[in-house]
Amino acid sequence: MKIGVCAKISPHADARIKIKSDGSGVDTAGEKLVVGDYDEYAVEEAIRTKEAVGGDVTAFSVGPASDEKLIRSGALALGCDSAVLISGDDAEGAGALGTAKLLAAAIKEAGCEVVFTGKASTDGGSSQMGAMLAELLGWAHVSQVTEFALDGGNFKATRNMDAGVRQIVSGSLPAVITCEDGLNEPRYPKLPDIMKAKRKPLAKKSAGDYGVGAIAPTSNQSNYAPPPPRPPSRIIEGDAASAASELVRLLREEAKVL
């Protein structure tokens, strides 16, 4: 089976987030980059699916050419067989919809039957790309999946919904699956595999290689700022019982939330 995984290279959770002085964006130059948290689960699930049913895994990513090293270490070294990296200013700035258009074209070309991706990126975090990709491919999709299994051309998945409700669902391939925290336990690369990954095929593409039409972003971000400051906290003194009753009084009379 042809299996695909879409993974975005983004700043590590502990990276410093510096707002540019003109508010036009965030400067993460020099910060540690990794495959995004949720995309790690997607990479792992794609490899596990290959191990269960056979076939091969292609990793797809949109990002600067310098992401090649991280795609090799964060996807190919773990067991993906090949990769497609789509680079260039227009591709890298395409926004969620443009990114989905490029990935849909690349996935069609590769002939994948199932594609995994994270439920959200760890930078923009808009949770849009996976569902958009499914729509552009005309495939079924399931979001926020915590369990997944294939049975021939059908799949069974468990998804996390609102209010703590989970549902077991079934459907037919082809499908896009967006991966939730806890879907699996992502593996670490072994040194020999890191060496081997250097020789695995990685196709460097540009938006022009895919005749997908306009991918210019129609969403525009501006006025970047740190989180709004909170007023200084008030520390309530006294023993447990008196602090508790003073807190309840403040929550009722001052904050008016009780």
């Binding site: 926004g95 969620a96 919809l97 989905a100 439920k119 959200a120 975090g125 808009s126 949770s127 849009q128 790309m129 996976g130 569902a131 958009m132 499914a134 729509e135 552009l136 999709h141 979001s143 926020q144 919904m161 609102d162 972003p217 129609t218 969403s219």
Partner: peptide, 20 residues
């Protein structure tokens, strides 16, 4: 959930962008 699961798919069908 519907806003993360169905609305992006709707936006893609309408060929429009979305602020989540």
């Amino acid at each position: 959930y519907i806003g993360r699961d169905a609305l992006p798919r709707l936006a893609a069908r309408l060929d429009t962008a979305m602020g989540s």
